[in-house]
């Protein structure tokens, strides 16, 4: 079943076209990794999916509903179904880990407070932070903060989670704990779109990999094809640079 579909999506900042005619789709339960050089439009594409950016051409559908920033209720509904995890975590610094996770369930979804707090506590335990529920983000390491952010995304009971380079801002020794949590989510069947430079993760976890270059989608296929036998010379070039040989 198709959860997210993009057809002929175009996006430009002024005259600068950053997404050029991109079409692809994400099925329920699928893990899609989005790779490509810096400035190729990976973040922009991800942000278009949950309406943090608007797009000028084509169509993005989530559950068959068009992503349209002008439709305020529609876009909020889509955002509660498609959560986002950011490169720089973006936790709310004035709230505890628990409050960060419970914020959406309580104030956006109107879940009863006690229930939301209990569920949030479980989610934090699930990302290995049972002992940190009362800590503020400033008291946590980058890896811990990103795990709180993942718990916050899960708190919305989303149909899919979008990750924008979730480990790029982390010290190398903290990358593993975050990827570990993401792997277990994938194992449990969560639908995920992951922008990443972690090729090991893409190879092991992704069902499909797409390669974006200059806003153009150049490859779309299973990891063993895209990462091991890329067709396009630009992909070969990119992989040669990023993979230690």
């Amino acid at each position: 079943m198709t959860l997210i579909s993009l057809s002929n999506v175009r996006k430009s900042y002024g005259k600068h076209e950053v997404i050029r005619d991109v079409s692809t789709s994400v099925d329920k339960g699928e893990v899609l990794c989005l790779i490509g050089p810096s400035g190729s439009g990976k973040s922009t594409l991800l942000r278009c999916i949950n309406g943090l950016e608007d797009y000028q051409g084509g169509e993005i559908l989530v559950h068959g509903a068009r992503v349209d920033r002008k439709d305020r209720n529609g876009i909020r509904d889509i955002r509660t179904r498609v959560s986002m995890v950011f490169q720089r975590f973006n936790l709310f610094p004035h709230r505890t880990a628990l409050e960060n996770v419970a914020e959406g369930p309580i104030y956006v979804k109107g879940e009863p407070r006690a229930e939301a707090l209990e569920r949030s506590t479980e989610l934090l335990a699930r990302v290995g932070l049972a002992d940190k529920i009362d800590a503020h983000p400033g008291q946590l390491s980058g890896g811990q903060q990103q795990r709180v952010a993942i718990a916050r995304a899960l708190g919305m009971k989303p149909d899919a989670i979008l990750f924008d380079e979730p480990t790029s801002a982390l010290d190398p020794e903290l990358v593993g704990e975050v990827l570990g949590v993401m792997r277990s989510l994938a194992d449990e069947g969560m639908t995920m779109v992951v922008v990443t430079h972690e090729m090991g993760f893409a190879r092991d976890v992704a069902d499909r990999v797409i390669f974006l270059d200059g806003g153009v989608l150049l490859e779309d296929g299973p990891p063993e094809e895209v990462l091991v036998r890329p067709q396009n010379p630009r992909t070969q070039d990119f992989l040669r640079r990023i993979l230690p040989s």
Binding site: R79, T80, F92, G104, V108
Partner: peptide
């Protein structure tokens, strides 16, 4: 930081709630 309002928007908050909370 802009990331704050983006994170708030991305969990489905409207403008008023983003401001207030």
């Amino acid at each position: 930081d802009n990331g704050q309002s983006e994170a708030a928007l991305s969990i489905g908050m409207g403008w008023g709630m983003v401001m207030r909370r």
